[in-house]
């Protein structure tokens, strides 16, 4: 069972469609990052933004760099870093929750001037 798409078929969907989709995802992530009150939702928004960047890299890798596919290698590194970031971020969140007993972002203001 193969998932490969035959050469010459990639031209039906333009590159800009993928770029626009990634832009929608990234802007949604930015809005959620700014406006979320729940700390877990902030982490989810960061994951959305990282996925948008991954989609850009994959689209460029397929359309422009089809032989060397350096974009796919970079996507794998980004996935690695995202997994590490999620683990550390959720550990920080648990530690915060034990100390402040809330997940409200507006009350994590110990370092604010």
């Amino acid at each position: 069972m193969t998932f490969a798409i035959l050469p010459g078929m990639g031209e039906t969907i333009p590159l800009q469609a993928y770029l626009g989709l990634a832009a929608v995802l990234f802007c949604t992530g930015v809005w959620g990052l700014i406006n979320s009150r729940n700390a877990v939702r902030v982490l989810m928004s960061i994951e959305l933004m990282l996925n948008a960047v991954n989609l850009n890299l994959m689209a460029f890798s397929n359309y422009i760099d089809g032989q060397l596919i350096r974009g796919q290698v970079f996507t794998i590194f980004v996935i690695t870093v995202a997994a590490a970031e999620a683990a550390v971020g959720l550990a920080i969140l648990l530690s915060l929750y034990r100390n402040r007993e809330t997940v409200d972002m507006e009350r994590f203001n110990l370092l604010r001037w």
Binding site: T2, A4, G8, Y63, L68, I69, Q72
Partner: peptide, 19 residues
């Protein structure tokens, strides 16, 4: 655009060579 044709199913081999 258009770039070189995509390698398709050989992508996994190429990724391993890169890594």
């Amino acid at each position: 655009l258009p770039g070189p044709p995509p390698v398709g199913e050989e992508a996994t081999i190429r990724i391993g060579e890169h890594l």
